[in-house]
């Protein structure tokens, strides 16, 4: 078995393990972290259904960002939407037969990659040239952009310039997915190796980085709470145990 095939196969298993369990642990941690205060940003929805709609509008349309800064919103929206299309297009390497939706996404994904790069470059420009953003930017902020740009640029180069044997590459990925440890040989074109290395690094760094905003948004108390502090008293379970104030005795508590 060739060195690169074994190297990338093991790296992929390792990175997937880190990503899945890291992400799972983080979500678990978010879920058990107490939210002691009732702090939805008003005007906030009065019902659970309303909260679902609010969260969806955050997740799908980045509503808060739109209200605070239009052009960052534009770059962010372009980048995230293009990333979705590109990710859907990449599903073709992970399934056989390929779903019709994924087949239909192929031509869009191909050009979506340019939009993705455009959005990323916009966000990078913001970080570098808007003075106050530049001042608060940490190395990890640049690292995320750098990794995503590396993935995007090498991907575009593979697709449009240097090429690789995608049939053999799919066979390699499927042999990983089938846990067939007699792995299919991986093509070793330079750009493909760069592309995959950046993907593996991003997968490993994901559960430790600000990319956790993806699951994190669902756990933001200012966004996921119902605005009903008078109808229903907000008590965290640990506070009940700690201070022996049972929710039943709430009526006598002076507020």
């Amino acid at each position: 078995m060739e060195f690169w095939t074994a190297f990338y196969a093991i790296s992929f298993y390792f990175a997937t393990f880190i990503l899945l369990f890291g992400l799972g642990y983080k979500v678990y941690q978010y879920a058990i972290t107490p939210a002691p205060l009732k702090i939805p940003t008003t005007p906030a929805p009065l019902t659970t259904g309303g909260v679902v709609i609010r969260l969806l509008s955050e997740v799908v349309f980045f509503r808060s960002l739109f209200r605070s800064n239009k052009w960052i919103w534009l770059f962010a929206m372009i980048f995230h939407l293009a990333l979705w299309i590109v990710l859907i297009r990449h599903l073709r390497y992970f399934m056989d037969p390929v779903w019709t939706l994924v087949v239909l996404a192929q031509p869009f994904g191909k050009y979506g990659s340019f939009l993705m790069l455009f959005g990323l470059l916009g966000l990078l420009m913001r970080r570098m040239f808007v003075t106050r953003i530049c001042y608060i930017s940490a190395p990890s902020d640049y690292l995320m952009l750098f990794l995503l740009l590396t993935i995007g640029i090498s991907g575009v180069l593979i697709s449009f310039v240097t090429r690789t044997d995608i049939v053999q590459f799919k066979a390699f990925i499927l042999s990983l997915l089938c846990f067939d440890f007699n792995w299919q040989t991986m093509p070793t074109d330079a750009m493909l190796l760069v592309h995959l290395s950046a993907v593996i690094l991003l997968m490993i760094v994901f559960p430790f980085s600000k990319l956790l905003h993806a699951p994190g948004i669902f756990f933001s108390p200012t966004r996921n709470q119902v605005d009903n502090p008078r109808e229903k008293r907000h008590v965290a379970p640990w506070a009940v145990k700690e201070f022996e104030t049972s929710p039943a005795s709430t009526t006598t508590t002076s507020e």
Partner: peptide
């Protein structure tokens, strides 16, 4: 499944 069947779609 993968190990027993060992069938990578090709």
């Amino acid at each position: 499944n993968g190990v027993s069947a060992g069938e990578v779609p090709m």
